[in-house]
Nucleic acid binder design. Sequence first.
DNA 1: AAGAGTGGTTACCAAAAGTAAACTAGTTGA
DNA 2: TCAACTAGTTTACTTTTGGTAACCACTCTT
Lengths: 118, 118
Amino acid sequence: MKNKIDIQQNEITDFSDPCTLPCPIERGMRIIGGKWKGSILWYLKDGPIRFNELTRKLRGASKKMVNQRLKEMEEMDLLERKVLSTKPFAVAYEITDFGKSALVFLEQLKDWSLENNI
Amino acid sequence: MKNKIDIQQNEITDFSDPCTLPCPIERGMRIIGGKWKGSILWYLKDGPIRFNELTRKLRGASKKMVNQRLKEMEEMDLLERKVLSTKPFAVAYEITDFGKSALVFLEQLKDWSLENNI
DNA sequence: AAGAGTGGTTACCAAAAGTAAACTAGTTGA
DNA sequence: TCAACTAGTTTACTTTTGGTAACCACTCTT
């Protein structure tokens, strides 16, 4: 995870960097709000999932996309990539504690979606 | 707001249309998750705001962007555009009940951001 | 009359994001 | 040996997004 820059204390205002955005909602959205990110985290909540399985669940997303998102989310410490020493080898993606902390509000988003027929 | 298509009952799977996405989290994200949308709604929660004021608050967003987002959000019934008959004329943007219903989880997102130093 | 503020619109351009399809390389079962 | 599955990577292409800057009509202040 990138270091946060305290925008109260200095004048760095590079708005292309999510960490310098003034609004915490905006900063949060840049972490969790990307295309597919929320869904991926949601699918991971019940246990590790393997790459192809995840791609199938996220119907409509290409392999490249899924892989890109997974890499980003691993860098942000939302999930972990684990290579299983099975034969043939497999890779499982597992949610981290930080990732789990985001589930609270993803659950609310899900409820909001369903309640409002979105 | 677009009509929801019941994906349980038919086989329409146009994934470019948010409404046909299988995951409610993904559908919700397409409504509220865009760049600046969350912040705009958050700034509107304490009362109507005028265009230029909003643009100034959203430091880093261009007039064009703000206007685009406002139009989208008006179409989605998240907010209302009201022309005030003052001289010179002014425009105020006001949050709707539907918009207010999203504030619950935006608040959670804000807390999550602050708790995790995002 | 000039300058600033209101709320935008427009044109142009660059960069980012997303897509399908082919390809890799190793393993396994028929 | 061949097809299929694992987890991707690469390519080539199209689409979307976003940014700057100029412009507009109107009004108010100086």
